[in-house]
Design a protein around this nucleic acid. Structure first.
Lengths: 118, 118
DNA sequence: AAAAACTTCTACACGACGTAGAAATAAGTT
DNA sequence: AACTTATTTCTACGTCGTGTAGAAGTTTTT
């Protein structure tokens, strides 16, 4: 599966949190606001292109400048990651047992509710 | 969190599956059996040392040669990974909802059972 | 003490990622 | 249409993690 570098992750955080379609220039600004030094526009474009190739973001080429947005919500992405981990296990039940064994009581309750279809 | 390269992962698979304490020479043999070309003993030692630094394996220095073993079971490791993913989420419930929404019916049943403390 | 076995140190190539200038292309102006 | 400006794509380089292993150092055996 694809992994994310620090800058790539920062970009995804912005796209996931914001939810809107953003241009590379928008992202450049948000990244600068979020602390790090102001990156060159080409840098942001490069990262976005890499994220596009990895399937994390989609690009609308009809807009000028191009706008980018997350291909999946952060929650979907994380759930997917969890399934990915689980999918690599030979003894899935053992993994699940450990997993639920470590959740807090309220979270266990949440899980029960979610599983009861209510 | 620490990530694993291909060779590192192969070594962990062996240690996890085998469960025994193995020397670098043992591992050299197992790796060779498992397909890849026969690695130099120092290569195996280097990888084991790196895995030790990452906390994935522990080493018994009293044995000669040193023997290595997984610091945590594969299941524990994977459950830990899942928690790690979940821990990074702001809306944990949303992630869990997606997660359980995608499990198979039998696995959902398994989860219910595990959560009911039975 | 010398040899053999084992461990640690050092090193290098390669791919991923952060970073961005140069080159190419498209859009807007005069 | 020619020129200027905005935008995108191409190319590149440094760094870090990882696969790989020889050289050097240490411990054990003979």
């Amino acid at each position: 599966m694809a992994t994310l570098g620090d800058l790539e992750r920062s970009v995804m955080e912005i796209l996931w949190t914001d939810g809107e379609k953003l241009s590379a220039y928008d992202l450049q600004t948000r990244l600068a606001d979020a602390g790090s030094t102001k990156l060159a526009p080409t840098t942001v474009l490069t990262v976005l292109t890499r994220l596009e190739n990895k399937g994390f973001v989609a690009r609308d080429r009809s807009s000028r400048p191009h706008v980018f947005f997350a291909a999946a919500s952060r929650e979907d992405h994380m759930a997917e990651l969890m399934h990915e981990v689980l999918g690599a296990a030979s003894d899935r039940e053992a993994v699940l047992a450990r997993f639920v064994g470590q959740v807090s009581p309220d979270e266990a309750e949440t899980l029960r509710r979610l599983l009861s279809g209510r």
